[in-house]
């Protein structure tokens, strides 16, 4: 799939413009506090939101006018692996959140899955991936739970 850079910039500008406006609104909704006798709680929020909106307008203008920045953004099969990696990572964090599988076994599974997803799938590669997953998880377990007493999962 191909996307024009210019179109993409305009779309991004619109999103940022809306985000800025939304942040402005959130800032304006914060009630004043007697504790701040000078600057006020919501001002910085409004300032950041407002500035973002203004800058987003500039971005849109640049994209519409600027011929040189035009080009193509390509989305193709090469994105499959980063997407797969991100999905496996998300599954791993989901499991951490709900505590279904204990953390360290799930960590080994995550490493194994990503290593397989990125590498070859010959028997030898699978064996290496499994070994790497176990070794790395064991190392992480020692460093974090035994030396640094991080209770996770």
């Amino acid at each position: 799939m191909q996307l024009s850079r210019r179109g993409f910039d305009v779309a991004a500008g619109v999103v940022l413009l809306l985000l800025g406006a939304f942040v402005w609104r959130e800032g304006a909704a914060i009630p004043p506090s007697f504790l701040d006798t000078a600057f006020g709680t919501g001002y910085l929020v409004m300032l950041a939101g407002g500035a973002l909106s203004v800058l987003a307008c500039f971005l849109i203008l640049e994209a519409v006018r600027g011929g040189r920045t035009a080009g193509q953004l390509t989305f193709d099969a090469r994105l499959a692996r980063p997407a797969l990696t991100a999905s496996i990572l998300a599954l791993f964090v989901l499991n951490l959140t709900f505590g279904l599988v204990p953390f360290y076994p799930s960590a080994a599974a995550m490493i194994f899955a990503i290593a397989l997803g990125l590498g070859e799938r010959a028997p030898r590669a699978v064996a290496i991936a499994a070994a790497a997953a176990l070794a790395a998880t064991a190392a992480a377990w020692v460093v974090f739970t035994q030396v640094f007493v991080v209770l996770i999962g």
Binding site: T85, L89, F92, V93, L96, A107, M110, I111, F112, A113, I114, A115, L118, G119, I128, A129, A132, A133, A136, T137, A140, F144, V150, I152
Partner: peptide
């Protein structure tokens, strides 16, 4: 990098 990526990701999570 096949192994480095998931291993560093694990360290990042922890």
């Amino acid at each position: 990098k096949t192994y480095l990526i998931p291993i560093i990701l694990l360290f990042c999570v922890i």
